[in-house]
Simulated assay, not measured.
Amino acid sequence: MHHKALPEIFRRAKELRNRLTPAEAVLWERLRANRLNGLHFRRQHPIFKYILDFYCHQFQFAIELDGEIHRLKDQIERDKEREEDLKDLGIHIIRFENRFVIHETDEVLWQILTEIEKLKKDFSSK
């Protein structure tokens, strides 16, 4: 579940859980306690050398929220490498911009559920 995440990654994830961004707080309020169709999500979940904003282990599904920094060229390259590493671990990722999460929360939730439905089909065909 954690793919050999080091203790430092666990420590940092705990810190991040204690100071969610406004967009993370909005989405967490809708995901926590299995509120989204009974799906269990973890927030700031350590995997390998990364911390995923939100993670549903049942479907190996991660939700990443992007602020302004993710528009910078260097960060775009790091995000691409990160996604490739996570894909190699079998993790599916969906990304949303922070402002979209805050202003279009219901649309974000609908897109998450749509992706989960696709993953359910993939999991049932294995």
Rank of each mutant, 00 (worst) to 15 (best):
H2R: 06
H3Q: 15
K4S: 13
K4N: 11
L6Q: 13
E8G: 05
F10E: 12
F10R: 06
R12I: 09
R12S: 09
K14Q: 12
E15C: 05
L16G: 11
L16H: 06
R17I: 06
N18K: 12
R19Q: 15
R19C: 15
R19G: 14
R19S: 15
L20T: 04
T21A: 01
P22E: 13
A25F: 10
A25Y: 02
L27K: 07
W28D: 11
W28C: 08
W28R: 07
E29F: 06
R30E: 13
R32Y: 05
R32S: 04
A33I: 11
A33D: 14
R35P: 05
R35D: 01
L36A: 04
L36K: 03
G38P: 15
G38R: 06
H40L: 13
H40R: 12
R42S: 13
R42E: 15
R42H: 15
R42G: 09
R43Y: 15
R43Q: 14
R43D: 14
Q44S: 04
H45K: 02
P46L: 04
P46H: 07
F48T: 02
F48R: 08
F48V: 01
Y50V: 06
Y50K: 04
Y50G: 03
I51F: 03
I51R: 02
L52C: 11
L52G: 01
L52W: 06
L52I: 04
D53Q: 09
F54W: 15
F54D: 02
F54T: 02
Y55M: 02
H57S: 11
Q58A: 13
Q58H: 13
Q58N: 08
Q58Y: 10
Q60L: 14
Q60M: 13
I63C: 00
E64S: 09
E64K: 06
L65P: 06
L65M: 03
D66I: 13
D66C: 05
E68F: 07
I69D: 15
H70Y: 13
H70Q: 06
L72C: 09
L72T: 10
K73H: 07
D74A: 04
D74F: 08
I76R: 05
I76N: 07
I76W: 10
E77K: 08
R78M: 12
K80P: 00
K80A: 12
K80Q: 09
K80M: 05
E81L: 12
E81F: 12
R82M: 03
E83L: 03
E84Y: 08
D85C: 08
L86D: 08
L86Y: 14
L86K: 09
K87M: 11
K87S: 12
D88S: 08
L89N: 10
G90Q: 05
G90H: 05
G90V: 02
H92F: 14
I93L: 14
I94E: 01
F96G: 01
F96V: 04
E97F: 14
N98P: 03
R99Y: 08
R99L: 08
F100T: 12
V101M: 07
V101L: 07
I102N: 00
H103C: 07
H103Q: 13
D106P: 03
E107F: 03
E107I: 07
V108A: 10
V108M: 00
V108C: 14
V108W: 01
L109A: 01
Q111I: 03
T114W: 01
I116K: 00
I116L: 00
E117N: 09
E117G: 00
K118I: 09
K120S: 00
K121S: 02
K121C: 00
K121A: 10
D122C: 08
S124F: 10
S125Y: 10
S125G: 03
S125W: 04
S125F: 10
K126P: 02
